[in-house]
Amino acid sequence: MSAFSDYLEEGILNHTLRGQALSVPSTIYIALYTSDPTDAKTGNEVMDSGYLRQDAAKGGTIASGWTAPTTSSDGKMTSNAKLIQFPPIADGTVTISHYAIYDAQTGGNLLYHAPFTVAKTLEINDVLSIDVGGIEVVLR
């Protein structure tokens, strides 16, 4: 189950209940974490010279990176529509436990976050790939 960030919670409340504009990003990026990012963005994003957040749409439109929302047993759900592949690990062993969705390749605003079902330990030259449907954003 994915969680909203503090930034997104505030933005949705301001948009739906106070009539304020909600900024729509032009690109969505997937980030990898070695700990829980938390709603407040306090976790540890991967620190590796080969690491770079990945564009979920692979250069296409933002919508092309995600499936149309459907109803699941947990609520409304969308998932990544494209394979997401990160560059090889360059500096040493790293264990990936969580992912996050951002509106920028560096810095930016955290939107959603969740743990992977199983943490993955990567060694130098290992590549992490996330299959189509491997990231689900579920809203209740």
Rank of each mutant, 00 (worst) to 15 (best):
A114W: 09
P69S: 13
V94H: 08
S97T: 15
T70D: 08
K76L: 14
G59T: 07
T71I: 14
I84V: 04
G65K: 10
A68E: 15
K82Q: 14
I101L: 10
Y51T: 04
M77P: 06
P87Q: 06
I62C: 10
I89F: 01
Y99K: 05
S79M: 11
P87Y: 01
N80W: 04
T95Q: 03
S72A: 15
G92M: 04
N80I: 04
P88N: 08
T106W: 01
T95F: 01
Y51S: 00
G107F: 07
K58V: 11
K82G: 07
H113Q: 13
A100P: 02
Y51A: 00
T95E: 04
A100N: 06
N109G: 12
S73H: 11
S79Y: 13
I96M: 04
F86Q: 00
I84K: 01
D55I: 02
Y112Q: 09
T71F: 10
I62A: 13
R53V: 02
A57P: 00
R53K: 05
G108P: 03
A114Q: 15
V94P: 08
K76S: 15
A100S: 14
N80P: 12
A104Q: 07
Y51W: 03
P88G: 07
Y102Q: 11
F86N: 03
H98Q: 06
L52P: 02
G107E: 14
Q105D: 07
A104G: 07
A100H: 05
A114I: 09
D91M: 10
A63M: 09
I89E: 00
I101N: 01
G60V: 07
P69M: 14
P69L: 12
S73C: 08
A57I: 00
T70F: 13
I84Y: 04
P69E: 06
Q85T: 14
D103T: 00
